[in-house]
Simulated scan of single mutants.
Amino acid sequence: MEKMKIIIPGILPGKNEQINADRRNHFVGNRLKQKTQEEISWPIRIQSRGKTFGDHHVIIRVKFYEPWNGHHRRDDDNIMHGCKYILDALVNLGIIRDDGPKFVKLLPERETDLGTHGIRIEITIEESGMVWKDGRLTAREA
Rank of each mutant, 00 (worst) to 15 (best):
residue 1 M to I: 12
residue 1 M to S: 15
residue 3 K to I: 04
residue 4 M to E: 15
residue 5 K to I: 00
residue 5 K to V: 00
residue 7 I to P: 01
residue 7 I to T: 13
residue 8 I to F: 03
residue 9 P to V: 04
residue 10 G to T: 03
residue 10 G to P: 01
residue 17 E to L: 00
residue 18 Q to I: 00
residue 19 I to V: 14
residue 21 A to W: 08
residue 21 A to T: 08
residue 22 D to H: 00
residue 22 D to N: 11
residue 24 R to W: 01
residue 25 N to D: 15
residue 26 H to P: 08
residue 26 H to M: 03
residue 27 F to T: 06
residue 30 N to S: 06
residue 30 N to A: 05
residue 32 L to C: 02
residue 35 K to I: 05
residue 36 T to H: 07
residue 36 T to C: 04
residue 38 E to L: 09
residue 39 E to G: 07
residue 39 E to Y: 08
residue 39 E to W: 07
residue 41 S to T: 06
residue 41 S to Y: 03
residue 41 S to A: 14
residue 42 W to Q: 04
residue 45 R to I: 12
residue 47 Q to V: 03
residue 47 Q to C: 05
residue 48 S to I: 07
residue 49 R to W: 01
residue 50 G to S: 05
residue 52 T to Y: 06
residue 54 G to E: 13
residue 55 D to I: 03
residue 56 H to M: 10
residue 57 H to L: 07
residue 58 V to T: 07
residue 59 I to Q: 14
residue 60 I to Y: 03
residue 61 R to M: 13
residue 63 K to I: 11
residue 64 F to V: 00
residue 65 Y to E: 08
residue 65 Y to M: 08
residue 66 E to K: 13
residue 70 G to H: 12
residue 71 H to A: 01
residue 72 H to R: 06
residue 74 R to C: 01
residue 74 R to H: 05
residue 74 R to G: 00
residue 75 D to G: 03
residue 76 D to V: 02
residue 76 D to W: 00
residue 79 I to N: 08
residue 79 I to L: 07
residue 80 M to H: 08
residue 81 H to V: 02
residue 83 C to Y: 13
residue 83 C to I: 12
residue 83 C to W: 12
residue 84 K to G: 09
residue 86 I to F: 09
residue 87 L to T: 14
residue 91 V to W: 09
residue 92 N to V: 15
residue 94 G to R: 01
residue 95 I to E: 14
residue 95 I to R: 04
residue 96 I to E: 05
residue 97 R to F: 04
residue 98 D to K: 14
residue 99 D to T: 03
residue 99 D to H: 09
residue 101 P to R: 04
residue 102 K to M: 14
residue 102 K to C: 12
residue 105 K to N: 02
residue 108 P to E: 12
residue 108 P to L: 10
residue 110 R to C: 01
residue 110 R to M: 08
residue 111 E to G: 04
residue 113 D to A: 00
residue 113 D to I: 03
residue 116 T to F: 06
residue 116 T to I: 10
residue 117 H to Y: 05
residue 119 I to S: 05
residue 120 R to M: 08
residue 121 I to E: 01
residue 121 I to G: 01
residue 123 I to G: 13
residue 123 I to F: 05
residue 124 T to G: 03
residue 125 I to V: 13
residue 125 I to T: 07
residue 125 I to G: 06
residue 125 I to L: 11
residue 131 V to H: 12
residue 132 W to G: 14
residue 135 G to F: 11
residue 137 L to Q: 15
residue 137 L to E: 15
residue 137 L to Y: 09
residue 138 T to C: 10
residue 138 T to Y: 10
residue 139 A to P: 09
residue 139 A to S: 13
residue 140 R to M: 04
